[in-house]
Computed example of a mutant assay.
Amino acid sequence: MPLTNTWLAGPTPDGELDREHLEERILNLLSSQNMAVIATVDPNGAPAATPVRYSSLGFEIFYTSWNDSPKSRNLRRDPRVSAGIFAPLVGQASSRGAQLFGTARTLERDDPEAEGYWEAFRWQCDHVERGRSLDEPPTDPLTIITPDRILYTEHWLRRSGYKPRQTWLRP
């Protein structure tokens, strides 16, 4: 049987992308997707994973959630969080995603620090879907995830001699 992507066979390359190119690829992924799975720690210490629709600003991702949701309660108790974001997978050649590890903070609608995030948040599409007026922005708080580390995976990097998993650390 012929191999469609011969570069996937054989040993995995060990090249490291330079920071500038790694950051460009991560930012492309974050801005071209809109779904993440957020993992928090529940009261018993067990992981709790929840899908959310997010927006991004730089390397941070953020979403709205009412204050009494399980994920919001979990983050108030323990702000450590992980988020998984991935592009649609067709096969190994298209494998592309990121795991963000960091902390979360929640900003109420009237918090001055939230203003820049609200400008970048794509809430209008959600309002249209739910038949809500575009003249009335959401009142729920925003939860912002600030990563300390991002594990980026892209198997296409193998074609150029780079390992498919690269690590980004916040400066």
Rank of each mutant, 00 (worst) to 15 (best):
F86G: 09
W168M: 06
L89Q: 02
D111Q: 11
Y152P: 05
Y152C: 02
I38Y: 01
V128M: 08
P112Y: 09
V90R: 06
Y162H: 13
Y54E: 04
R149D: 03
T146R: 05
R130E: 05
E113T: 12
I61V: 15
T50M: 07
D78I: 04
I144C: 07
L169Y: 09
A9P: 02
A46C: 09
T50A: 09
D111R: 09
E60W: 09
R122E: 12
D140Q: 14
Q124N: 04
T64A: 14
Q99P: 00
N74H: 13
I145Y: 05
I61N: 00
T40G: 01
R73V: 08
S133D: 11
R170F: 03
Q99V: 11
W123S: 06
L8M: 14
P164C: 08
L157N: 04
L107Q: 06
G10I: 14
R76T: 06
F101M: 04
E23G: 08
V90W: 00
A83G: 02
F59M: 13
E60Y: 07
G131E: 07
W156A: 14
P51H: 08
E16G: 03
E129A: 12
T6D: 15
A9Y: 12
P2W: 13
A87T: 02
T146N: 07
G84M: 10
E24A: 15
I85T: 02
F86W: 07
P2Y: 13
R170M: 06
Q166P: 04
F101T: 02
R80A: 05
S72T: 09
P112H: 10
R130A: 13
S82Q: 05
L57G: 12
S133W: 02
Y162T: 10
P43L: 05
K71R: 14
S56A: 15
P70D: 10
L29A: 07
E23H: 05
R19K: 15
V41R: 05
F86M: 09
A104D: 01
A46V: 01
S72G: 01
A93Y: 00
P70I: 08
M35T: 11
L100G: 01
F121M: 11
P47K: 01
K71N: 00
R105P: 00
S65D: 10
V81M: 03
H127Q: 10
E136A: 14
R53A: 13
G131Y: 03
G116Q: 13
D140C: 12
A49G: 12
P70C: 00
R132D: 07
M35C: 02
I144M: 08
R132P: 01
R130C: 07
Q124D: 07
D68I: 14
Y117A: 11
S56G: 11
T143H: 04
A104V: 00
S65K: 08
N34Y: 08
W156M: 11
A36T: 04
G45P: 01
H127K: 09
E119W: 10
T167P: 05
L8T: 07
R19N: 12
D68L: 15
H21L: 15
M35P: 00
D78C: 00
W123E: 06
P13H: 10
E129S: 10
P137T: 11
K71C: 03
E60K: 15
I145F: 07
R96P: 00
D110Y: 10
R109I: 15
E136K: 06
G10Y: 13
